[in-house]
Every structure is written in C-alpha cells, then in structure tokens.
Amino acid sequence: MQTVAARPQAPRRRLRFTWAKKQALWGFVFALPALILFALFSFIPIARTFYFSFFRYDMLTPATYVGLHNFQSVLSDPTFGQSVVTTVIYVLGTYVPTLAVALLFALALNMKIKARAFFRTVYFVPVVMSMVVVTVIWRLMFQHYGLINVTVLNPLHIGTIDWLNSETYAPIGLILMSIWKELGFYIIIFLAGLQNIPSEYYEAAKVDGAKNLAAFRHITLPLLQPTILFASIMAMINGAQIFIPQYVMTSGGPVNATNVLALNIYQTAFVYLLAGKAAAMSVLLFVFLGIISALQFRFYRSSQ
C-alpha cells in the first residue's frame, strides 16, 4: 500500500480501488492454470463419479439412468463384500505392525545412537524404490525355492510354503512385503514427531524421578498423538487404495484371495465395462474413507 500513499491526494481513492482490483486480477490469473487442471482432472471427475453411480454405462454406448440399481447390485455382490474384507485385512495387517515397529525404531533412533544417519538412509531405501520393482523382487523371494522358504523357513523347520498359490499365505506375503516397503517412511515421520518434543519435559520428569517407561507413557505418547493420528489416517487412505502388488504379483488370486477394492474397481470398469457399477463402488469407498477419517479426528479430539 506504500505505493498508493506516495501518490498525490486528489485521485487517491480511485487509484487505490483500481490498484486493488488489478491485484485481485493478477492473483486470479496466477491461480488459474492450477484451477483449470483441478477442475478438469479432480472436480469434474468427482462430480461424475457420483453422477455415473446412478447410470448403467459401458463407456461405449450412451448411459441409461437406473436409479439405485448399481448400489443394490454392488451390495449384493459377494465379490464386492470379499474385496472389502480383503482390503480391510490388508490395511490392518500391514499398518498396525508397521506403525508399532516404526515407533519402536524411531524411539531407538532418537537415542544417542552411533551412525544414526546411516540407519536412517538404509531404512529409507525401500521407500524410494518403485512399487513395481519391489513387487517383482518379492515375487522371486516367494517362489518355492526362493529366499523366504530356503533361507528363513527351512532352517527354522517350518517347511516350505507355496506363498503365491495359497489363499491363506498370498495375502500374508503381500502384507509382509508392504511392511518392508513402508516401514522407513513411518520411522521418519515418527522421528520428526519425536524431535519436536522439547527435551525440558524429559529433564523435568527425570527430576521428579520418573522411570523411562513412565516418561514414555506420560510424555512421549500424549505429545506424539497428533503425529500418530496423522500417520494412521495417511496409512489408511494409502492402504485402502493399494493396487500394484495385487495386480502385478497375484492378479487378485488365488481365487480372489488378494482381490482388493482398487483391483475390483479397475476390473469392473475396464475389464467388464460396468462403469456405473464401478462408480457406485467408488462412491462407497469415498464415503467410507470420509467416515473413518472423521471418526479418527473425533476420537483424537475427545482424547485431548
């Protein structure tokens, strides 16, 4: 506003007005490229997902309105129910251990450790690796004479597991792989959270004679809660959309044992050409994730 103040008295009001207007226009122009992209590739698709969930549409011939038929068909489809269960098992099976172990390692790294940077780097390598590459490596490791059976299970006399062809073990295998891949990311997140806790708190606790475990329970955990909440929401939103390992390693099999929701949506739309039904599934996923995030926030607020 200093520019305006420097101008002569008489036309001041008009000048300020046009200056503000010009600034507003520039602001809008600068936001425009991103807004156009968001409109085309986020807002319109979001609206269309809801819209198409009420239509039968094969993406080739014109859509026909079918009311709630898609939702009825989705909810009565046993494959959909199964893919929801598979996804929930994957998310819980992967992220409950991942978050717990990541917290443990973050606590360890937060102590006076030699070569902390080295450990951090090594744990982080799987995070930057491409998911497709990770998947093909683990597919090799899960073979009959692959690394897991030969080096881990056989010496422990557990025998040989046919990982990729077993309805029980294929989902477990994918969970193990995902834990390996994701761990480093959450270690870093938790480490950042831990380093934000002022050390005075611990010193005060020490003066009061608190043991390590008590300090962890009464200082670390409460102060780390926002980080834990964030990590779990993020884990859930990412986990619910998992697609690559199931597509590349097991193609959803054996017998739909790894047919997660994202794979089911993909196949429904692009293999069976039931875009309306896939849209209905998407809407349910959308609403479900929204509810869970809201609940997690609620839970977090009420525990404060």
Partner: peptide, 30 residues
Amino acid sequence: FRYVFRGLFFSLVLMTLMVPYVALIVPLFL
C-alpha cells in the same frame, strides 16, 4: 493476493487431498 473466492478455491484444492485417487479413475479416464 486478496480476491473473492480465494478462500473457497484454496479449500476446494485442499479437499482433493482427502479424495481417494482410485475412486476417480473411471471418470478421469472418460
């Protein structure tokens, strides 16, 4: 910058962070 709808635009943009990408693949493709 200050202009009408700035707050609305920014909230709309942030809202998309909560949208699962997988739920958009069909209409995005269209």
